[in-house]
């Protein structure tokens, strides 16, 4: 009799892998007569433990690994910079970028489902990066007045797009349609912000053309989705 050591379920003799937990059963230890534990084999422990991890534990593992890699990068760049220039110069940039990257990975790992918190945190950290880059190099100068408004427009559009996508039950071409519309709106935001930054005036030119091109594409996608979607039976959707 072949028993899966993880699930304890009886399996057919010819099964090499438990279809439930994906544990390998090719060793004689999976036979019930054999009392030695399969977990004793080197490498086996990690393999089983990894599969037994919950999704949250796997995310935490990813976060820890990212932390180790990024903080090692920070340490290495700081040491190289200090050894070669006897002060902290260019490594400020890499350290700042790595830290912002780590904040974003942390947000994604632990607050994935809290959309406002995730996007808000990501926006604030990336804005801080732009401000710091401005501070490090006075010649950049566009971070606060141009970079942050563009970033804000981008994050608001992403927030709305994600909320719309999440609330949409039948996902398909309609999501692509939303993306095209969002791209059109983003291009208008870009033109408004850039023209205000350079000319202190709001003018709409090329972005209107982009938006006008996006709308019919989105409409075609919506038509394809809702016309061809057999799930959209009006009788069941509107039953009262």
């Amino acid at each position: 009799m072949k028993i899966c050591p993880q699930c304890g379920v009886e399996l057919d003799e010819q099964m090499a892998v438990c279809p439930l937990c994906k544990s390998a059963l090719d060793s004689p230890s999976s036979l019930i007569e054999d009392s030695s534990s399969p977990d004793d084999r080197p490498g086996r422990k990690f393999y089983i433990d990894y599969f037994r991890l919950t999704f949250q534990q796997k995310r935490k593992l990813f976060w820890e690994l990212s932390g180790i890699i990024l903080f090692s990068g920070i340490l290495v760049t700081l040491i190289i910079d200090f050894v070669t220039t006897k002060s902290i110069t260019w490594s400020r940039y890499t350290v700042t970028v790595f830290l912002v990257l780590f904040v974003n990975i942390t947000l994604l790992s632990f607050w994935r489902h809290r959309l406002l918190f995730l996007l808000g945190g990501s926006f604030l950290s990336t804005s801080a990066l732009l401000v710091l880059l401005d501070m490090y190099n006075k010649r950049i100068g566009w971070g606060t007045q141009l970079g942050i408004p563009l970033l804000l427009a981008f994050y608001i559009i992403i927030l709305l797009l994600t909320m719309l996508t999440r609330s949409t039950e039948h996902k398909g071409f309609n999501i692509l349609g939303y993306c095209f519309l969002a791209a059109g709106i983003m291009s208008m935001c870009i033109e408004v912000i850039v023209s205000w930054y350079f000319l202190k005036d709001i003018t709409l030119g090329w972005s209107l053309i982009v938006f006008a091109c996006m709308v019919p594409i989105a409409l075609i996608l919506f038509f394809l989705h809702y016309r061809l979607n057999r799930g959209m039976d009006l009788r069941r959707f509107f039953h009262i």
Partner: peptide, 24 residues
């Protein structure tokens, strides 16, 4: 479970039922 405009409703799914390990 599906969302209608006025009520939720149940929609048939033509897929086989699956069996999973009781580990969660």
């Amino acid at each position: 479970l599906k969302k209608g405009f006025f009520w939720y409703y149940l929609e048939h799914v033509d897929r086989p039922l699956s069996l999973s390990a009781d580990i969660h």
